[in-house]
Simulated assay, not measured.
Amino acid sequence: MRSFGNRSDCRGIDEPFYAYYLAETGLQHPMRDAVIASQPNSWREVISKLNGPPIPETELLYIKHMTHHILPEIDFENFLSHKNCFLIRDPRLVIASYAAKWDQISTDDIGIKRQLEIFNTLQDLSDDTPIVVEAEDILKDPQRMLPELCKLLEIPWQSQMLKWPAGRREEDGVWAEHWYASVNATTGFAPYQAKEVELTTDQELLLAAQMPYYEELQKHKIFA
């Protein structure tokens, strides 16, 4: 989101279905009340805002979703006019990142199973296979991966996608106060460093359950 948000022709929308997701599920996420108050609580209202009115031809709209926010009742036909791109990440790192901020983690929270379901649904509804990008691949070589991603999205490459100012951005959701401290400290893609993380026994079991979904998505990634 920081990378695309730093383009001269792009504006971002951060997790537009989050309030709807919390209202529907009743989950007690950090800052729940503030999130629910900040966005529409109806998925139809969210879709209406995302799909109209048309944005100028010279402008791009970057919409960051969390897959678990996309509940089954949402009509995927509404996404067919979008260029859908899936960012995948090693489930071990996802679980460790989640565990650092919240101790109630499930397959639904991790979102990889739902990510594959959404991928398959969009593929079935259209003639196009959605784009899949591995997070670690971008971190290892952003100067190669980001221009390639722009090419597949049919948008011009802008080198300012590699660097951005530190701090909060206008498009950040209200939940940034809880979740985005490390993101706010960044100014670009730091040199890649492999992360060694330790998981609890329960988290290792959770990891094992995610791997088949992750490995299936990896088959479709750029430079697989």
Rank of each mutant, 00 (worst) to 15 (best):
I222W: 10
R89E: 08
P72I: 01
V133I: 15
I131W: 01
N78M: 11
E24K: 15
V183M: 07
D172M: 11
L146Y: 03
L149W: 07
A23M: 09
I118S: 03
L80M: 12
E170W: 01
K221S: 15
M161P: 10
K151N: 11
Y192V: 10
S3V: 06
L80D: 00
S81M: 13
A100K: 14
D172N: 14
K221Q: 13
G12R: 02
H29R: 14
P30Q: 08
D137K: 13
Q143R: 15
G173N: 12
L71I: 06
I74S: 02
A19M: 02
T200M: 00
T107C: 05
L162D: 04
L153C: 06
Q104Y: 12
E45Y: 05
Q218I: 07
H82R: 11
P212C: 01
A190C: 00
I47A: 07
A224Q: 13
K113Q: 14
E204D: 09
G52P: 00
V94H: 03
R32C: 11
P91T: 10
W179D: 06
I112C: 10
V35I: 15
S106I: 06
L152C: 07
D127Q: 11
W175L: 06
N120T: 11
E57R: 13
G111H: 04
I13G: 02
H69Q: 06
E148K: 12
L22H: 05
L60I: 07
E15F: 00
K151D: 12
Q39S: 05
N41Q: 13
A100Q: 10
W157N: 03
E215G: 04
P142E: 05
L60Q: 12
I110N: 05
I63P: 04
G52N: 11
I131D: 02
R32L: 13
A166W: 00
F76P: 01
E57G: 09
R144S: 15
M161T: 08
C150G: 01
I13R: 05
V183G: 00
L87S: 04
E73I: 12
S106M: 09
R168Y: 08
N84L: 14
Q158R: 04
H65A: 05
S182N: 07
A209V: 05
L146V: 10
A176C: 09
Q158D: 03
I63C: 03
S159E: 14
T186W: 02
E170K: 08
E196P: 00
H178G: 02
Q104L: 07
T201P: 02
D124T: 13
D141Y: 11
P191C: 08
D108T: 13
I55Q: 11
E134N: 09
K221A: 15
V197N: 01
L125D: 05
H82G: 05
S159V: 12
K113T: 09
A99S: 15
L122W: 04
M145P: 00
I118W: 05
